[in-house]
Simulated scan of single mutants.
Amino acid sequence: MSHSDIESIFYAFSALLSVSSIVFLLLGLRFRRTSLNEKCHNKKYYSRVNNIIESTDELLTRKLTPNETLTHSAAEIGIGNIEYLLKNILTSENSKPYLFGINKGGALIANYLSHRMALHEKFLVKCDYRPDIDKIYCEKRDISGPIVIIDDVTRSGTTLFKVKEHIKSVYPDNPIYCFVLVVVDSNLNGDTITNLVDYAPWITENKTISLPWSGTTSENIKIDDYFDDTEMDQIIGRIKNLDAA
């Protein structure tokens, strides 16, 4: 083999390595971009949500900076994303979803979403977890459709896990989804609770993340103080337009 042949082989091998490196880099970026969503693949009903998320960039999980709070606008964007997924679940399951709002924040979001989707009050279920006595109190319903657990923020995943296990034991035959507005994870990749959450529009490493309604007593919470229907219509419209493009 001549010297020129060796050089040709060397350059060809180098070019192949370069192309491979670029491919792996792009795949790595794609994985990091959607890691929270992709790592839930072991869930029975997850693939239906996953297909919708991956087809629309607007639905991909976004990261909050360490000291960033969740503003009213960011909350509306996240809840708009969740509403879009709920409407797709309604279509795919051919049945209206039952919204289980966890504690104060989850109940606020579930209540607003039920208003947005014109769901009868029977589809809205209040669910409280009392950590001091380790008890779960959920309103009883005769449920025949998909269940969607909704929470505003999940930090350790303890509350979400206990509530979800309780609901699974009461309604073992119902499809169960879980949507959280903000996931707290120190590694910013959702590793700690991805087996619990089907979708979260926001993720942060800040354990003391503040939401617009943080610190408000349950008696004083009013939906109109936090969400605007016109703005939400614009958010949903933008997602639909991007999804159709």
Rank of each mutant, 00 (worst) to 15 (best):
D224Y: 13
G105Q: 00
T61D: 04
I102R: 02
K162Q: 07
N88D: 13
E7M: 06
L211Y: 00
T69I: 12
T204S: 10
I209T: 13
K140S: 15
T192C: 04
Y137D: 14
N88Q: 06
A107Y: 03
K126S: 12
N206S: 03
D128P: 00
D185R: 00
F13C: 14
I52P: 02
T34R: 15
S92K: 13
Y137P: 00
K168Y: 06
Y177D: 07
Y199Q: 02
D152H: 02
C178F: 08
W202G: 02
P146E: 04
G105V: 11
E205D: 15
R48K: 13
K43P: 03
G78H: 05
I89S: 08
D233R: 13
I79L: 15
K140M: 10
S47Y: 07
S14H: 05
I149P: 02
H3N: 09
A118E: 10
D191M: 05
G80I: 05
W202V: 07
N67M: 13
F179Q: 01
E7I: 10
K63A: 13
K87T: 13
I109V: 14
N111P: 01
F161P: 01
N51M: 10
L36C: 12
Y98P: 11
G28E: 11
F100K: 03
L99S: 05
D229Y: 03
G78C: 06
D151V: 06
L124T: 08
P97I: 07
K63P: 02
D224R: 13
V163N: 04
G106D: 03
L124F: 12
E121L: 05
N206H: 09
N174S: 14
N81S: 15
T56W: 00
C178Y: 03
V163D: 05
D57M: 10
Y171M: 10
I149N: 09
A12E: 14
D191H: 12
K122C: 06
S210A: 06
D173C: 05
D243C: 00
L86D: 01
H3T: 12
I223K: 10
S92T: 11
S114N: 06
S114Q: 07
N241M: 10
S95P: 02
N50D: 12
S169H: 11
Y129C: 03
V180Y: 05
S92W: 01
C127Q: 05
Y11H: 13
H72G: 00
I52W: 09
K168V: 09
H41V: 07
W213V: 13
D132A: 13
T204M: 03
V153Y: 01
P175K: 07
E38S: 15
V182Q: 01
N81T: 01
A15C: 14
T192L: 11
S20H: 10
N50Q: 15
K87N: 12
T56M: 09
A12V: 04
I239E: 00
L196T: 07
G106V: 07
V23C: 14
L16K: 14
G237Y: 02
I147K: 04
S95L: 08
S20L: 15
E68H: 04
E7W: 03
K87P: 00
G101A: 06
C40D: 01
A74R: 12
C138I: 05
F24A: 15
N37C: 09
I239C: 11
S214G: 06
L59F: 12
L113W: 02
I176H: 10
D191N: 12
K168G: 06
L27D: 05
V182F: 04
V125M: 05
D185P: 03
A244G: 03
F13N: 10
P175F: 01
I6P: 04
S21Q: 02
I193C: 11
L196I: 04
